[in-house]
Design a protein around this nucleic acid. Sequence first.
DNA 1: GTCAAGCTAGAACGATCGTTCTAGACGACC
DNA 2: GGTCGTCTAGAACGATCGTTCTAGCTTGAC
Lengths: 199, 199
Amino acid sequence: MQEVSDTRSRIVTATTELFRRRGFNGTSLKEITTAANATTGSLYHFWPGGKDELTAEVLATSGAVYREFFEAMVNDTNNPGQAIADFFAGGSEILESTDFIDPCPIGGVAREVASTHDGLRQAAHAVFDGWIEAAGAFLQRCGLDADEARELGATLVATIEGGFVLARTTRDTAAFTASGRHMQLLIDAALADARTRVG
Amino acid sequence: MQEVSDTRSRIVTATTELFRRRGFNGTSLKEITTAANATTGSLYHFWPGGKDELTAEVLATSGAVYREFFEAMVNDTNNPGQAIADFFAGGSEILESTDFIDPCPIGGVAREVASTHDGLRQAAHAVFDGWIEAAGAFLQRCGLDADEARELGATLVATIEGGFVLARTTRDTAAFTASGRHMQLLIDAALADARTRVG
DNA sequence: GTCAAGCTAGAACGATCGTTCTAGACGACC
DNA sequence: GGTCGTCTAGAACGATCGTTCTAGCTTGAC
């Protein structure tokens, strides 16, 4: 027997993929169990709380994966603005090579359920806080003061999320890539400003 | 009899409001007709194509309202960066005073259905194109060249949409307001750069 | 008064929703 | 070999989904 049940992780993976295409309310448990080659019994065995409990885990898991991906891509750079632009370029490639499926399920699901499922809203809130913290910590290490780093981190996350919406809707990554360049300008300007103030 | 049926416009309004809270798949026709004080027969009389046809109209209508709102708020300013920051500040006020309901139904619905309802994706695409055109035209009038104006317009739209997601999920407008300040910096820098190049 | 057009009313359809439930398969341990 | 906990299998539940359909109401034209 494996440490984490195969069926369990297949269900998480299938749910993540389906949420990326159809969102929360557009995805049925039948579609999930079929895609995961599992049964209703198994799903309710692992998540007695049903769809909501499974969704909360999917959000947390995807959130952690993205945070690690961001940190791996951005740490150990000596050109922060360029690193962010590269991150956006990577997003463009993923969008194009996956037929503009939503790159991540969190923002879409969060927007759908924020007014109706407060537990899921809070789960997504925790994920976004983690991302903003990661981006802020990175920018602070690059020389920004804590407040400015965190605010710029939040704008980064917002622009990425909104860029996903735009790219997915227009089936075009031009705007997303351009946003990466704009974020690069913003970071470079903030760093230059910080250096000036330090002297 | 009025030029546009009362029932018809009540249904459009109710659908818009429900989409802002529950999204496309989370809103049923029964909820719509109940909220609009209308019947299924009326709904299918005005939109024989059913939910999809009604949704397409809701997207186009909301899109036009937002475009006009943006243009009214931003035209006749002599400080473009400040006008955009004001636009974000206005968004923050709306979010707080409406219990963080989605300020507009378009981005959320588009993200939900982009992979499953191509007609609706195209309707949302047209709306976003209109917004980017409006923002780009404004920035071009302020002195940016056409390409840079359009790209910056797209980043504005992306940051607004993503900011809505963040604010709605965290129930906090601090990040949204900060993003407005960042967009102001970006615009001021682009305008200064354009002035330098012109001489 | 008759007629047609525009609109309303809501019952009924088959399909599908999330969830519950019972029955049994499998493996580890005594 | 019997027993218990873990997991799988899928039928069944009531509720609700989007849509269709028939019947009737209202209004203005003739």
